[in-house]
Amino acid sequence: MRDDLLDLLWEGLKETLYMVAWSSVFALLIGIALGVTLVVTERNGILAAPTLNKIIGTLINGVRSLPFIILIVLLLPVARFVVGTSLGPTAAIVSLSIGAAPFLGRIIENSLKEVSSGKIEAAKAMGATPWTIIFRVLIPEALPALVRGITIAVIAITEFTAVAGAIGAGGLGSLAIRFGYQRFRVDILIATVIVIIALVQLIQFSGDGVARSILRRRRQL
């Protein structure tokens, strides 16, 4: 029985890690694009385009106002189109990435906004292009804040992954529901919760560690 439990947990954890890792990567790529675009297209931004800014902002707010469980259902056809099925971990990655990207976009936007306008002005005064300013000023200067924000987002994606488990995504979430809720296996339910908590702690701990080591290298800590 105990071996059986460990096996289940191990399979669940592997699926969860697979979903969290890939969803985070894709959500991060989309989120960076969204966040950077939001910052540079602001009215006083380095590539001011207020209308585009409004459109993206409204889209993000729209997606973010939907409860995640509804968003997954809405995105099922997209998942089927991209990976050929709407069931299983790979299909869930599509929904998770698209669902988390707007959240990451806002987090990245907020971190980048913390970079003082004076630094951007100085770069402009030295003849830097907007591209250079994005990659050599905005992102590096905001890096510690970015890492902290991304950590929060990865933890949110971990939570979303558990929710996605409820509708057939697999992973620890579906383990908890299939055994803990539907078959009253309290031991599996508790074990799953412990593994998820440990996973979240580990993500937070790693994120904090990376942010701190960046600051320490720059002697800002």
Binding site: S116, G118, K119, E121, A122, R136, V137, P140, E141, L143, R218, Q220
Partner: peptide, 9 residues
């Protein structure tokens, strides 16, 4: 500039 505006990174 008054506030130097150096890059901390």
């Amino acid at each position: 500039f008054q506030h130097f505006n150096l890059l901390d990174s």
